[in-house]
């Protein structure tokens, strides 16, 4: 387990991408520790009387040269709404980097599948794969084209396929309905996913039936984020495990899905 830190970052930029997605760029005064895709930060929410706990957020992107990280925030409640309203120059306190991360594949053909705000860790993952000589391809699912975030950043790294539930962009339906998810002989051997649990369960089943390695990232409700409170557990073949320290990235076959 890598060393964890508790640190104040300064918000460099708050950029709104859609009606409910915001990307915060945070700068650290010193050199950043090494982080891996799939890891997360526990972000303190100040000035939010209705909430008490930190918010676990995926590390969306890292720039070691400028000591910046990005967090993709979907406004779902008072805590994330408060974070999304923060302005450049304000401080944000993070406990990081936390949890397990996606592994480098032993095969070359990979697909990264994100749904909703589950796309958050996949940009960092795509960059990491690219740096390690693997060409990432992305499949992004959203409710409609208004919910798609930052597609250009993904396109710089590889092909991007899209599904929307209302058909306003790409293939109509869920990610499983996209032609790349073909029934016979899919052209990938490794699938990384993050998003709503029903979507990931479908992808886990699809992968199991085709002998494809599937790594999923869970987002259970957390308190501490460091394996102390035992609140965020998920049932695995070895009993209840903490999503924050034994996860959030799990091999799908390890889960009781």
């Amino acid at each position: 387990m890598s060393k964890k830190y508790i640190t104040d970052f300064v918000i460099l930029e708050n950029r709104r991408h859609t009606h409910e997605f915001v990307i915060l760029t945070l700068q650290h005064p010193e050199m950043l520790p090494q982080m891996f895709p799939g890891q997360f930060a526990e972000v303190r929410v100040d000035g939010s009387p209705q909430t008490y706990l930190r918010r676990p957020l995926s590390i969306h992107d890292v720039d070691y040269k400028n000591n910046t990280i990005k967090l993709l925030i979907q406004e779902v409640g008072p805590g994330t709404r408060r974070l999304a309203s923060m302005k450049s120059g304000e401080k944000l306190n993070l406990v990081y980097p936390l949890g397990t991360y996606y592994s480098l594949p032993d095969k070359k053909r990979v697909l990264l599948v994100g749904g909703g705000c589950g796309v958050a860790p996949l940009l960092f993952l795509g960059r990491y794969l690219k740096e390690n000589g693997i060409d990432p391809r992305f499949l992004v699912g959203a409710r409609s084209e208004n919910d798609l975030v930052e597609l250009d950043a993904y396109r710089e790294l590889g092909d991007v396929y899209i599904t929307t539930e209302d058909g306003s962009r790409g293939t109509r339906g869920f990610v499983i309905h996209h032609p790349v998810m073909k029934t016979f002989e899919p052209d990938f051997d490794w699938l990384y996913t993050c998003g709503p649990e029903p979507m990931m369960r479908v992808l886990a089943k699809y992968s199991r039936e085709r002998n494809i390695t599937c790594e999923v990232s869970l987002e259970n409700k957390m308190a501490c984020g460091i394996g102390a409170c035992l609140c965020c557990v998920t049932p695995t073949i070895e009993g209840n495990k903490c999503t924050c320290t034994d996860g959030p990235v799990f091999n799908a076959n390890y889960l009781k899905w």
């Binding site: 609140c231 557990v233 049932p235």
Partner: peptide
């Protein structure tokens, strides 16, 4: 322990059922 969900945030606090 108990099944998930085991935790609910409340104003200035939390409920647990670990």
């Amino acid at each position: 322990g108990n099944p998930y969900p085991r935790m609910a945030e409340t104003p200035m606090g939390m409920l647990n059922a670990v």
